[in-house]
Structures are given as structure tokens and as C-alpha cells.
Write a protein that binds this DNA or RNA. Sequence first.
DNA 1: GCTGGAAAACTGATACGACAGTTTAATATT
DNA 2: AATATTAAACTGTCGTATCAGTTTTCCAGC
Lengths: 255, 255
Amino acid sequence: MKSMKTEVPVLSRRKPADYAESAYRRLCDAILEGRLMPGTPLSRRVLAAEFGMSTVPVGEALLRLEAEGLVESRPRAGSRVRIPTASEIQGNYELREALETHSARLFAERATDADRKALVAAAEKLDAMFDELKRKPYSAARHAQAERKHMRFHMLIAGAGRCVELENAIERSRVLLFNWLFTMSAEFGELPGGWHGTLARKLVGGSPREAAEAMRVHVRYRKDEVIERLSELAGPETARMARGPQRHRNGGSRK
Amino acid sequence: MKSMKTEVPVLSRRKPADYAESAYRRLCDAILEGRLMPGTPLSRRVLAAEFGMSTVPVGEALLRLEAEGLVESRPRAGSRVRIPTASEIQGNYELREALETHSARLFAERATDADRKALVAAAEKLDAMFDELKRKPYSAARHAQAERKHMRFHMLIAGAGRCVELENAIERSRVLLFNWLFTMSAEFGELPGGWHGTLARKLVGGSPREAAEAMRVHVRYRKDEVIERLSELAGPETARMARGPQRHRNGGSRK
DNA sequence: GCTGGAAAACTGATACGACAGTTTAATATT
DNA sequence: AATATTAAACTGTCGTATCAGTTTTCCAGC
């Protein structure tokens, strides 16, 4: 409607510094890699000094991490890496089931032949990796890498559904669960042989409903066991941070 | 472990001012009520002047709104109320289907007798309201109120599932869709007679799978039509804000 | 008339300082 | 010794100022 001058090219994408983004990345990575364990206090000032910036961008990073559920903060008394409660873990499992089953359904409906081929190939490689993992002694690095590959496998399924919103939601729920899983070390890489191969075949060959149900059993596998183990590490249900829930509760419609 | 002195009571909950929270509420309400239409520029300075505070808390509020998807911003060139793309609308529909069907399943599994009774009662009242809405001439206020009640109905189902994470996700996806729906005025309050009553009966009486499938058809009702209409208002798929996507893209694991 | 480019008027990003809560440690009181 | 009180050391919150990008405007040149 207005001016229609020479369409500007898309060449502006650099970040002159973006301290906030940098701080966010460093903190997020540190939490996800387990270097910052749940409960670790996060002071804006010490982080600012450590990162060589002021407290403002650090605060922005903490705000984003809080919105994502990785950090909790009390109004004027500090932030820390979030300690999940047992019910939160259970809730995230529920969320994951809802999202992944729908993702599988979309895969069965929309995946191209290339998608399906890629999936079975990825499944075979993943199963081989888990087999190998079973033989070797436990190693945090190997375990973490396995989790990353597992994540990519599920994101491959989600990607074939052609729905970014669903992809993002799945990634978020997985991140939340696996950040917590991270704290518990070994013995959870052991899966039945060909576990992902059979799943992939059902997704590729089955109807949407069959695909969804196959994914449901996949997601629920060992669910109770994992929840129980995680709940031990989790903070007690009440009084998680001594004084009620974190601020900025809801995030949608009020009134 | 540490000190075990006189357990501190839970009496700290006030906010000495919390300008940021206030700004967030005002902006969020204004957007959700349609007073700030998609595309409206949001300048930190003018908002700060209007709210009687500095730009810092306004910035925090905008950051939260951006994380929620209600606002978009380009690094150093201003924020505005987000204009959704057609694919985003479609994606949110997909998300909503995944979440609501699982919510219905949980309802069938976990709802108490009181939950079930409350649901059928709410459904009848809702249907009556929609019937009345059909007769009266269009009114933005009535329409908005109807949407709110409709929202509450769905949150009633989610609440019986006993899973806050799922509830929050459903609320968020609904808010995102209906903030956009808000811009299109009338003719979408018209539903088949007893529409929610039949759904409620299936949720109350059916198996988990039947409940989920009933919810699926409920959510999909008129889906394509709504998407098409919304897509007209939506920004074009490419070049939504002239220069690529908003910053702070992903929100989970990178590396 | 249209095009090109410089300058002005925006924008958010960041630093710093002051402040008011919260927590913790030390101290006084019983 | 256990408890109440106080002081000190934290915490995030917010205001103001500065800076560097982006967008718009406006004027020169064709």
C-alpha cells in the first residue's frame, strides 16, 4: 500500500554483539549438559562478571530460561536451576505422549517416500548404536550422545509431519524430560533389540491410527519406572522452593 | 539437612510494585481483547510513558509476550503485535488436536463422578448459550464472552485429567488461535444444536479411545473453513515482517 | 516524474547506579 | 543452649543515560 521501492534484500542477519543471546546459549547449554545441576543458584551479578557483560542481558537470558521451565526464580531472592517435582515429570510424560502420538499420526498421513526411507535407515542405525552402548561400560559422554541421536530420530518423525509448531513443542517437552533424565546416570540406555526398527516399520506401513498406537507404546515404555526413579531426585511435591510457586504463573488468558 | 528452625509461614506473596507484571498484564489483555490489533507497533518508550514507568519493565513484558507468541520483534527495529501466517494457524490447529484428544482420553480415564456431572451440566449451559447467540444480532462483546465460556468448557475437561502441564499447553494453543479468531467478527458462533452435549456424553460414557475420537471430530469441525478465512487476514507466508523471522528462534536444545 | 542517497528520527541493547526486598549471619536475650 | 533480634550481605527491580543499528524522510540529481 505504501512505498514499493526497490525490494530490500535479506542481508541483515548479523548480531552486533547480542550479549543476551550469548548468555542464554551459555546457560542453556550448561544446564542441558549437566554442568549446572538442578538447584544451582544463578546470580545475575556473578554471571554478568563471568560473562563479561552487565546484569541486564543476563537477566534477559534468565527470563527466557524461566519461561522455558529450566530456571525458577523468586521475586527478589535469586534464581536457580529448576528442580522438578514428581508431578511435573509425570505431566511432561503426559504432554509427550499427546504430542508424539499425533506426530506419528501425521507422519503416517503426510510422510513422503524419502521421509519413510530415511526413517527406517535412522532407526536401524539407532538400534545398532544402542546395542553397542549396551556392551560398553557406562560413560556420561556416550550416554549424552545417545540421547541426542535418539532425540534426532524423534525429530525426524516430527519433521515429516510438516508442522513446526508440533516440532517445537515436542522438542521442548523432550528437553525438559531429558534434562532431568540427565542427572540419573546409567542403566536406561538398555532397550529391547530392534526397538526403534519395529516402531519405524509400523509408522511407515501402518494406518494413521496404528502409527499413533505404536508410538504410544513406545513412549510409555518403562514410563512408570523412569518416573519413579526421577521422583527420587525430584524435590518434594510441596515447598519446592520454600515459599510457594515461582512468579509469573500463567501465560495466557486471564480475566 | 541444614537449619530446621521455625518453619517459615507462606506469607510472602505481595509485589511491592512489579511494574513489569503490570505492563505485561495490560499489554496481554489489550491484545487478547482485540484493542491492539495484529501489526500494531509497540514502542518501549511510548508504552513506558503511557504506563508511567521506565522502558526496562516494558521490555521485560514484551520479552514475555514474545516468548508466548503474541508479539514479534526485530533486533533493533521495533516490536509489534504478531501477525500470524497461514501455516502457523494450521500448525496451532494441529497442536490443539494433539492436546485436546489426549485431554479427552485422560478425562475418560481419570474423571471422577463429580467431574462428569459438572461436564454435562456445563455442556448444556454452553449449548443453550450458543442457541441464544444464534438468534441475537452480532455483538463483539457477546461473541467474546461466548468464546470465554467455550474456553472454560474445554478447560473443565482438561482439569479432570489432573495434569497441569497439559492444561497450560491447551490454554496457550487456544489463546493463540482465538486471539486470531477475534479479528474475524461474526458467523462462527453457529454450531449444530446440542453440539457440546453430545461431545460431553461421549466423554462421560465412552472408552478413552472413543472419547479421544469424539474430541477429534469436535476440534476438526469447520477446521478448513476457519483456516481459510483466517489465512486471508494473515500475513503472506513469506516476508511477514519484511526481513526474515523474528529473533530468538528456537527455545530448546541446540548444539 | 522518478531514483539515489544522506540525514534525521526512530528502534532496541546495554551499562551503571540506586533502591527495596530477602536471606543469612551474628548478636543479644531468655 | 535455644530463641528472638538485629545487622550485614545478598537478591532482583527499576530509572536514567548512552550507544549502535534500522527506518523513514527529505532533498538533490537526473
